[in-house]
Design a protein around this nucleic acid. Structure first.
Lengths: 150, 150
DNA sequence: TGCCTATTTGGCACTATTTGTCCTATAGTG
DNA sequence: CACTATAGGACAAATAGTGCCAAATAGGCA
């Protein structure tokens, strides 16, 4: 699965080259298509990127839930509504749809961060903040990891 | 199926061009006809757009239900009553019937949002509100996301 | 440390998509 | 019957997306 974090840059058309390490994972699956959607962690916006097969598995999970339950409706609007499929081009890039680019505040410098079966794309500044806050929390609460059973 | 969200504009005749990504799906079905009807999510009005075959399938579902049950009658009045069939023209546009345009408060800027087998059309301002509320709700309910494995 | 290879990025040209404008056909009205 | 208003269709300009090539950079190996 995906491992590591990489700093990359968008070109002026909004294209992002996928780190070779991540691309290898996709090639291993035999399908380089990905699905990309909006997400938010700790008030900070980012994009979630799934290999197509993982995304489909996830959609199936969602379909099993009660469709008209109110939180589910919100969730579908938010997470599924924004999801769009992209293909990786010959030099390993994807075009990030304008709305998503705008949502996550992606300008030039971005960071791609692995998250198990998927990875996330952050605006560099936003990522620095999120990362620093996470570190801070760990330092100030020594029991944090213990409480999680790690 | 449909994926992604797109900002488009109506021309002064009320015509809306369907995003190429969505049109591909219709072309894949070999039938570009669609059915469009009124809908409301979280108190906010929008339009539901179905490929014709999906709509027919949905009608069959409805037919199986007890026809004179009161809520079913209401639903039929509302959802089926507003439904109208449109064809996509040569440059990929549909004409949105005036009543529906008015219903959903469509002015110039609209957003087309995928929703699995169909998509929705929102007035841009309305969509922003609905989206922001959904985002808010999800942020405040981390357990819900946890249940979904996010 | 320096060379070689692989990866990433920038630039350019070409194609496709979207949108605004114009034109014609049709129906309604005087 | 002629004129006007309007809807629908087509054209064309502007914009955005895609593909390709090559420069620059980073990483690996000797």
């Amino acid at each position: 699965m995906f491992r590591g974090a990489f700093e990359h840059t968008l070109d002026n058309k909004g294209r992002l080259s996928i780190p070779a390490k991540f691309r290898e994972v996709l090639i291993g699956k035999g399908d380089e298509r990905i699905v990309i959607t909006n997400f938010v962690v700790e008030q900070a916006r980012c994009l979630d990127v799934y290999p197509l097969d993982e995304w489909l598995r996830f959609e199936d999970e969602v379909r099993k839930k009660p469709r008209f339950e109110r939180r589910m409706v919100s969730f579908q609007n938010y997470y599924l509504g924004g999801a769009s499929e992209c293909a990786v081009d010959k030099q390993g890039r994807i075009l990030i749809p304008p709305l998503l680019r705008e949502y996550a505040g992606l300008k030039r410098d971005v960071v791609l961060v692995s998250a198990l079966d998927k990875f996330r794309v952050w605006d560099q500044q936003t990522w620095k903040k999120v990362f620093a806050e996470a570190e801070e929390k760990l330092m100030q609460d020594p029991d944090f990891l213990g409480d999680l059973g790690l």
